[in-house]
Amino acid sequence: MIFGIGTDVCDIRRIRRSVERHGERFAERILGPQEMAVWRARSARWPERGLRYLATRFSAKESFSKAIGLGMVSPMAWSLCEIVNQPSGQPAIVLHGALKEWFEARRLHAHITVTDETDYAATFVVVEHLTTPP
């Protein structure tokens, strides 16, 4: 059964301005440890690709927070939600700490898709309530 749906469109130019204004501090506020490592590696090699990565993660976390119905209110926190790529390249949500506990206590499971094109990143999240174990 569907618990919630969230979507977000992010202007990559806005993310670029935030990084120019705040530097790495902006990324540190948004990204978890695994994401931060990927962002640094991509930014070092292809700065534009690093910005796109950061924008998709920002957008994905916005979508996820909408799908679970919390917005950016505890236990939802930027760093407790990471969007990682599985070996196939498919994105997946990995939760930590209080957010993971909250999510698991409700027997929820999330599906996510991310995309970017020129100036925009877009994401879509469906959270379902599991009636049987995954």
Rank of each mutant, 00 (worst) to 15 (best):
P47T: 10
R21H: 14
E117V: 12
N85H: 11
A110S: 14
L70T: 14
W102P: 05
S65A: 14
A37T: 12
L54C: 04
R14D: 12
F64R: 11
S59C: 15
L95R: 03
E104T: 14
K100L: 14
R45E: 13
D8W: 05
L51P: 03
P87R: 07
I30F: 05
P33K: 15
A98R: 13
L31G: 04
K66G: 04
A77Y: 08
W39E: 06
W39P: 05
E62L: 04
I15P: 02
T7S: 09
V94P: 00
A44R: 14
D116L: 11
L95V: 07
A44M: 08
R21S: 15
P87A: 03
I112N: 03
T7P: 00
Y53N: 09
F64G: 08
V114R: 08
L108Q: 13
N85F: 02
R21T: 14
G71W: 02
E48N: 11
S88P: 03
I15N: 03
L51C: 01
V73T: 15
M76Q: 08
E101M: 00
T115Y: 04
P47G: 03
L51Q: 04
G71P: 05
R45Y: 07
E62F: 02
C81M: 09
R49G: 09
A55K: 00
A77I: 02
K66D: 04
R42S: 00
P47I: 07
G89V: 05
W46R: 14
E82S: 13
K66C: 09
V38A: 04
R29L: 11
T115S: 15
W102Q: 02
H22I: 00
A44F: 11
E48I: 11
P47A: 06
V94C: 12
V19H: 06
R57Q: 14
L70E: 03
G32C: 07
R107C: 10
S74H: 12
A67C: 09
V84E: 11
